[in-house]
Design a protein around this nucleic acid. Structure first.
Length: 816
RNA sequence: GCCGAAGUGGCGGAAUGGCAGACGCGCUACGUUCAGGGCGUAGUACUCGAAAGGGUAUGAGAGUUCAAAUCUCUCCUUCGGCACCA
């Protein structure tokens, strides 16, 4: 009687053995071709939930597969450890963010180890430790030196609850993405990175194996649009500016302008507003300040605005048009001013209708005879009411009018982007301090590289005050100027955590390097990553920032590649009760319970089996026992045969079929692995093990072939159920370790079927299936099909019109 | 509102123009000296039929094709992303 499969015992045993023998240690000098399999590192929120396992387990399976294929695989792990949750949790529990974070890491590390992954823990990176953030600060200085960092006063999103500035990306439906408090706006002096410099390049994804969906989202995020900047004349004796510049993608409609709209924050508004309109304009501006940008951009809201009392001149036709303000025009996009053409823009039409502003048609709808428009006409057409441009087709008029404007020096063709520069300042404690010093004499001075890291004091009061908590930490703030040696103050803002995660994949290549952020030779060896897997929620921000970092490094001559992530794959989300898992909803599924009951191998296999990886799904554990039983069946099958020591029959005849199925299985499993189709990969292994069970029972194959098949099954199973495979492998008396074995190769000739089922259809309906030799000729196949009695029932007394033959698949008889 | 993805048994899903429902869960029956979420065998879309066998079926409707879950169009539903972008 063999022992039962006891996952708890064997998993602990092998995890210990693997660690002691350093089997997963990654050797930079290994001459095998490299494979960098990167998984998005987890945020240190406390516990890993089943969704983390959904991200980590399949990516480990894939990395193990590549490792068995002979690659020198780097599959590292680390922790994204700075950020607001640590601070909030710390405030709530009265412990330091660092203590909270590090104890979370300890727990998560334990959970991750229970997964049985090939992580080389010697390469672990933790972004909140000085040996890491020293280099995050160094990146800040490098970007500054390269002219990519600057300070600007800008309206920012302000969460009154978190007492912190939020990036636009962190505002969800006008609310703070973490605490859901409505966000208000406030002006602060901030650090920005000039990511817009790379706008065009960031839209390019040439040569990258990425999902179309993500590429599209990134391109939309950049939001490139070609248009024309046009100057409208101002004639106000007391106003210094003599023009308003607007951006439009419809220069063909410039003769149809009947009013203009400025963003309420536009600097000209204060100068232009007439005395009698001032009260109303100021009231409107105040109202705008209380709206978040998200609210302003909501389509649900009715458009409204206020007349400033001022007018501008459309230089093209000399017409005088009123200047309005409205909150749907944003200062941050284009020039913060728009020309309004109600006849040919839906939004302008709605606005004009509300305030009874004129509508002037300049692009004629088909058969237009001067009727009043009921809605904006936005399609192309023939230009009218536009003086010398009349009669031109509107698309051609875009060029013609733009050229004319350029000749007259009234404007120029420009490219505009939705993308904005990256705001990196955070008025928070738990982040990497920004390495800048303010000196009354020398101005803003970078911290010299030799003085890095600027250490985050452990003892700071991090209570929210509306300003950086570091401001009140005298020993941190007070310093001397690196230029003049005089009294100076440190920058008290910290960096956006996206800074930390924009280069962690580079640090993994040389995590202990002390002379710099990374060892160039090792970066050259490992980067770019061959595959990057993670949630689609990082489609834009994180991936965008990382790409920006790499491009900036390249332009500084520090790396020799342009893109960090060659292949990108987004796994789906695991929900629970059809909702995203979150602590606040109380629907978090902890994998520990399943691991301690059924073992990590079963949990790994189940997560991969529930469906295509990119699809995710709702967590339902009702099927998990099926996977546990499957492993148990293989256990019994393999070890029973071992005990019996004789399991085949010499001279048995079915070995050829077994061999064929074996090679078909290797092929299917390998192909599914490469496509990351783990659900069908496991089905294939199940079919194979079921077949071996049958073969074992009937004793229909030769011992040597059966033996070989079992070894192949275990190797194909090793990435999915690493502990299980290792244990069975060792019980069979094979050498440690199965994970150092080579992935089986298939032989196409051996995988080839002798006979195939030929489907015979009559008028597209299946009427018979015939087993025919694989190399059957078209003539033979047709003859066999016509000869089938089952088919003849449907063909007698009918005229045969056509015979379709699909080689190796079917014959379709078309009769009438 | 726009963009994208998806909709297949009781359930998760398989099949990417060529046998619909692989594999697994659940369920049913039988067997097993079966204490246990054990093991084994058979069955399990709907429908007509005693059976052989037939018909119907991949959200709904049309179309293309010898052939459609798969391609096209319209509509419905769900999920994800974007947010007046001038």
């Amino acid at each position: 009687m063999i022992e039962k499969y006891n996952p708890m015992e064997i998993e602990a045993k092998w995890q210990k053995r693997w660690a002691e023998s350093e089997i997963y240690h990654v050797d930079d000098n290994n001459p095998a071709p490299k494979w960098y399999a990167l998984t998005m590192f987890p945020y240190t929120s406390g516990d890993l939930h089943i969704g983390h396992w959904y991200a980590m387990a399949p990516s480990d399976v894939y990395a193990r597969f590549k490792r068995m294929q002979g690659y020198n695989v780097l599959h590292p792990i680390g922790f994204d450890a700075f950020g607001l949750p640590a601070e909030n949790a710390a405030i709530k529990r009265g412990i330091y963010p660092k203590d909270w974070t590090m104890s979370n890491i300890e727990n998560m590390r334990r959970q991750l180890k229970s997964l049985g992954a090939i992580y080389d823990w010697d390469r672990e990176v933790i972004t909140c430790l000085p040996e890491y953030y020293k280099w995050t600060q160094w990146f800040f200085l490098k970007l500054w030196q390269a002219g990519l960092a600057y300070r600007a006063k800008a309206p920012v999103n302000w969460c009154p609850n978190c007492q912190a500035v939020l990036a636009n990306e962190q505002v969800v439906n006008g609310e703070c993405w973490r605490c859901e408090t409505p966000v208000i706006r406030r002006d602060l002096e901030q650090w920005f990175f000039r990511i817009t410099k790379y706008a065009d390049e960031l839209m390019q994804h040439e040569g990258l194996d990425w999902p179309e969906r993500i590429k599209m989202m990134q391109s939309n995020w950049v939001g490139r649009s070609e248009g024309t900047e046009i100057s409208f004349a101002l004639d106000y004796p007391d106003v210094e500016e003599k023009e308003i510049r607007i951006f439009t993608t419809r220069p063909d409609t410039v003769f149809g302008v009947t009013f203009m709209v400025l963003a309420p924050e536009h600097p000209l508004v204060q100068k232009l507003t007439t005395n009698e309109r001032k009260a109303e304009v100021d009231k409107y501006i105040d109202k705008t300040r209380h709206c978040s940008e998200i609210e302003r951009l909501s389509t649900e809201r009715k458009k409204d605005g206020v007349f400033t009392g001022a007018y501008a001149i459309n230089r093209l036709n000399g017409e005088r048009v009123p200047i309005w303000i409205a909150d749907y025009v944003l200062l941050s996009y284009g020039t913060g001013a728009v020309m309004a053409v109600p006849a040919h823009d839906e939004r302008d039409f709605a606005f004009a209708s509300k305030y009874q502003l004129p509508v002037k048609v300049v692009v004629a709808p088909p058969q237009w005879d001067g009727w009043l428009l009921q809605e904006a006409y936005v399609e192309p057409g023939v230009i009218v009411n536009s003086e010398k441009f009349n009669g031109i087709e509107s698309r051609a008029a875009k060029t013609a009018i733009s050229e004319y404007i350029e000749q007259q020096n009234w404007g120029k063709r420009v490219v505009s982007y939705k993308l904005r520069d990256w705001l990196v300042s955070r008025q928070r404690y738990w982040g990497a301090p920004i390495p800048a010093i303010y000196c009354d004499k020398c101005g803003i001075v970078p911290v010299p590289e030799k003085d890095l890291p600027v250490l985050l004091p452990d003892d700071a009061e991090f209570k929210p005050t509306g300003e950086s908590p570091l401001k009140y930490n005298q020993s941190f703030v007070n310093t001397t100027c690196p230029c003049c040696g005089g009294v100076a103050r440190r920058e008290t803002d910290t960096m956006d955590t996206f800074m930390c995660s924009s280069w962690y994949f580079i640090r993994y290549t040389s995590p202990h390097f002390v002379q710099g952020a990374f060892d160039s030779e090792l970066v050259k060896k490992w980067m770019p990553t061959d595959i990057y897997t993670g949630g689609a929620e990082h489609a834009v921000m994180h991936l965008f920032y990382s790409r920006f970092f790499v491009k900036a490094l390249r332009d500084m001559g520090l790396v020799n590649f342009s893109e960090p992530f060659q292949r990108l794959f987004n796994q789906g989300t695991v929900t629970h009760d059809h909702q995203k898992m979150s602590k606040s909803k109380g629907n978090v599924v902890n994998p520990d319970k399943y691991v301690s009951e059924l073992g990590a191998d079963t949990v790994r296999a189940y997560l991969m089996f529930i469906g295509p990886w990119e699809q995710g799904g709702d967590w339902d554990d009702s099927g998990i026992y099926g996977l546990s039983r499957w492993l148990g069946r293989i256990w019994n099958l393999v070890l029973e045969t071992y005990e019996e020591s004789c399991y085949g029959v010499e001279g048995a005849t079915a070995s050829k079929e077994l061999l064929r199925l074996t090679h078909q299985t290797i092929r299917r499993v390998t192909e599914d692995m490469d496509r990351l189709r783990f659900n069908t990969m496991i089905s294939t292994l199940m079919e194979y093990s079921n077949y071996l069970g049958k073969v074992h029972e009937t004793g229909s194959v030769q011992t040597v072939d059966y033996n070989e098949a079992i070894c192949i099954l275990l190797r194909l199973l090793a990435p999915t159920a690493p502990h299980f495979a290792e244990e069975v492998w060792s019980r069979l008396g094979c050498d440690y370790s199965i994970h150092n074995q080579r992935w089986p190769m298939w032989d196409s000739a051996l995988a080839q079927d002798d006979e195939i089922p030929l489907v015979v259809q009559v008028n597209g309906k299946v009427r018979d299936k015939l087993m025919v030799p694989v190399n059957v000729t078209e003539a033979e196949a047709k003859k066999l099909a016509l000869g089938s009695p089952k088919v003849q029932v449907f063909t007698t007394d009918k005229a045969l019109l056509q015979v379709i033959y699909v080689p190796g698949k079917l014959v379709n008889l078309v009769v009438k």
